[in-house]
Design a protein around this nucleic acid. Sequence first.
DNA 1: TATGAATGAGCCTTCATTCAT
DNA 2: GATGAATGAAGGCTCATTCAT
Lengths: 195, 195, 195, 195
Amino acid sequence: MRDPEKPQQIIEAAIRVFARNGYYSSRVSDIAREAGIASGTIYLYFKTKEEILVTLFREKMAAFVAYLRREIAQVPEPEARLRRLVLLHFTVLEQNPALAEVVQVELRQGHKFFRGASAHEVSAYFELIGSILEEGVAGGRFAPDLPVKVATKMLFGAMDQVATSWVLGKRGYRLVDAADAVATIFLKGVTRNGV
Amino acid sequence: MRDPEKPQQIIEAAIRVFARNGYYSSRVSDIAREAGIASGTIYLYFKTKEEILVTLFREKMAAFVAYLRREIAQVPEPEARLRRLVLLHFTVLEQNPALAEVVQVELRQGHKFFRGASAHEVSAYFELIGSILEEGVAGGRFAPDLPVKVATKMLFGAMDQVATSWVLGKRGYRLVDAADAVATIFLKGVTRNGV
Amino acid sequence: MRDPEKPQQIIEAAIRVFARNGYYSSRVSDIAREAGIASGTIYLYFKTKEEILVTLFREKMAAFVAYLRREIAQVPEPEARLRRLVLLHFTVLEQNPALAEVVQVELRQGHKFFRGASAHEVSAYFELIGSILEEGVAGGRFAPDLPVKVATKMLFGAMDQVATSWVLGKRGYRLVDAADAVATIFLKGVTRNGV
Amino acid sequence: MRDPEKPQQIIEAAIRVFARNGYYSSRVSDIAREAGIASGTIYLYFKTKEEILVTLFREKMAAFVAYLRREIAQVPEPEARLRRLVLLHFTVLEQNPALAEVVQVELRQGHKFFRGASAHEVSAYFELIGSILEEGVAGGRFAPDLPVKVATKMLFGAMDQVATSWVLGKRGYRLVDAADAVATIFLKGVTRNGV
DNA sequence: TATGAATGAGCCTTCATTCAT
DNA sequence: GATGAATGAAGGCTCATTCAT
């Protein structure tokens, strides 16, 4: 099990294939063809078809969160941070349409296994959002009685749905153009009264 | 095709089965057993397994939207309407855990077929939310420059995510308890400045 | 799972197919074709391909032993009983060439599972032979110091090898014609000195 | 094909692996790992997996028969020769448990190829036994009307089954301890009346 | 010669769908 | 209409064999 680039190639191929047909309607041989390798080769790097999906998700999600975290670290104010987070969220998805397709649509699947497998990576994103909100509350910028957990889910869900609509639609517009509106409405919703 | 109750029985059985195992991991024979009929009988009422899912979704979603529309009609103010919509959304899901499971998780799947099949019913919900927002804008209660489409998706996504978290979690709390917070934050976000 | 004759049909077909190609080189679809049914049908009656082999063996072996036991019960003297057993052993195999092939050759395979699965049925045969020998010893016809267990295995092995040679050869002679010689030599070997 | 020890290493490794898992459940890579070489290397010395088994058998069987023939040559009387043959048969198997496992169990498999491939070596063993019996008959020690071919198969089968039982069992006793009993019973069976 | 990653044919098993009863 | 046994296409995975290094 040598070639250190193969797993990545397979994952990238799987993203494209899953984006096209969905996980269940994709054959392992489709992924192999897309990756330009033999189907048996996939099993040198992944134990099962399912493992490809799980790995794909974990890796991409972890990288995504790490990227957001890094970018956001440079922004001082909570409001600006949230704005930046929303913008980056949409930017990344827009620049990776196939990934967006998989993440937005496939990963919602009712795989029991996914609930566990993805729990950590999703949590990390939630925690990132949550920590910004906490900060804002502590700093007096956001409502002192803000139900942070609910608000966190709301923002995530809001971004997610806007992105999903974009994915499911013909992508006839720029996703990033919605970033400002989303951030503005959400920020208004959580800002402390009187500020 | 005689028995007019069979399709309904099948759909209700399918909801429970899909909720347990997911669409792809559910067998038609599982649905039949759950419905107390023979698997062949299902094909007297549905052309394919897929049709069960599509029908299930359309029917439930249509009924859901109709119910919301009816209930909301009695509420005069846009703010109160939105509050009521959020509360009812959560109430219905909480009272139909299996349905919630299917709608929240399964329907997100990347079935190409779903995108078209469910478009109408989902649109109806979006339109319901959108019309309330339009009204609020027209009535001067919501921000005059509110991007209604984006805001619509945001509210839907926010409710959806809060519900999804509840479904995926152990359901260790009351979903309806989140209704107020969700409504409050969203309303604050869309309300006209200075109101 | 209704048709009560299907399992038998499948087993008989499997015997012929295994006899032709061996267990590992036989495909489930071969058995299905031989049985005149669809390959999926086999799985309505057997859980796995392996189960077919195990069932086949157990059933045939049990019937074989039961048959021998029944036939032998009518013969009073140990010597005559052994002679009859040898004759019947060869007769049955000769009349069921495919079964002989499978039993003689396939069942010797190193399937770990077989060692356990077949243990009971093989033991029954050994016990049948052993009991005749015990009787003969007790009745003073066979050597008083006869190591019954060893002698039992010897007779079984002797019959088995003679049958195997017949199976592996072109079957250019009558197997039953060897019965007398086998019985005579063995009986002479175990008879009490001076009798 | 340079290294003259490799084929032997591979065969010895194959014996251990086949003894553990059986031929069909053993992977070529298992043999390679057991031999401490790469799986591709095996194909420098053997054309196929099957060839390993055939070669293994031929070589071991030929050596076995040659060994027996050599040892027996020194014994003058047919009875003593047979006794020695039985003892050596069991001794060799007992000292090579893995080989015994393979020979006793695996080689019985219904490989069509085996019937031809091993015919010569098995024949050699049969001929060895047969020649001793012929000698005994000619010398007046064994029954003049002894059906030598049948008796040969009987002795081989008897030894084989005793050994097989020992292999399949837990090997909870010494195989060689059965040698005397086997030889005694068989000799009594073939000895000339009145001798 | 040795390696072991890559190949891809092959097969068991599942399950949506059909149809004789 | 209802049944459920039967069908057979489909696909995940294995592993003997090859071949570039």
